[in-house]
Amino acid sequence: MAILVLAEHDNASLKLDTAKTVAAAQAIGGDVHVLVVGHECGAAADSAKTLTGVSKVIVVDSAEYSAQLAQNVSKVVLDIASDYDHILAPASTTGKDVLPRVAALLDVAQISEVIEVVSADTFVRPVYAGNAMATVQSHDSKKVMTVRVSAFEAVGNEGSAEVVALSNSEAATTEFVSQELTESERPELGSAGVIVSGGRGMGSGENFAILEQLADKLGAAVGASRAAVDAGFVPNDMQVGQTGKIVAPDLYIAVGISGAIQHLAGMKDSKVIVAINKDPEAPIFQVADYGLEADLFKALPELTEKLS
């Protein structure tokens, strides 16, 4: 039987998370279909049909779904669930919002943040902030799971799936009021190859400018620790950690971050970790490949300059 992947998109474009979730679906093995639920989401559906390994794209395009509310999107998935053995979504805030509702309506347990597919019914997922890896075998008739996208490589764009439109429309009692998105011209945290992150040691929001200069030079995304977010230096969608974004770039540069368990949970699978901190006892040095004990206000400008 087939595998259904719930697409991550903002109506206008498909997110890379979808291509990574398709990779997890391919690891399970089977016919992969992508479901795009939204409003005026034709462009997202067009991108989805080119994903390698996808045989069918199902589009549900209606005004009721413009905000992709869990309350009604879950029912769209439920309507077609009988055709699928596996239902996957990226572990994004949308996937995490919608999929548990789908699982409960199907009366099956969900497996969250899968990082490895062992077989069609057995998966590996981190627990306790990534301090343990649990191998879980599902006994449910349908496997509903969210995928930790940083653990999978995106599939390419060599596909040509058929596109099928469904005309569901289900009103939700939830109303969308407003949205306030953070403007950034830098790469997204989830897909960046290089990430430069600042913590409490940055001292203020203004000081993040020196971090941004380094990020610009490296073409990097900018992240932050919880301390930096709570202090109001940067918006919370920049938080890397157990409860923020989970990232695994090629290079992660942690500046003025002590390295609490909760922060490490979000970045310790990065390929190369660099820590710049003036406290030689900071726990971040225990996971860093390269550590530099230095005052960040001296080291950062110097590093930015030497990279030119």
Partner: peptide, 14 residues
């Protein structure tokens, strides 16, 4: 108001 991936989103519900 909810914390979502790109920023904040506000919903109203009965």
């Amino acid at each position: 108001t909810r914390e979502v991936d790109g920023g904040l989103q506000t919903l109203a519900m009965p």
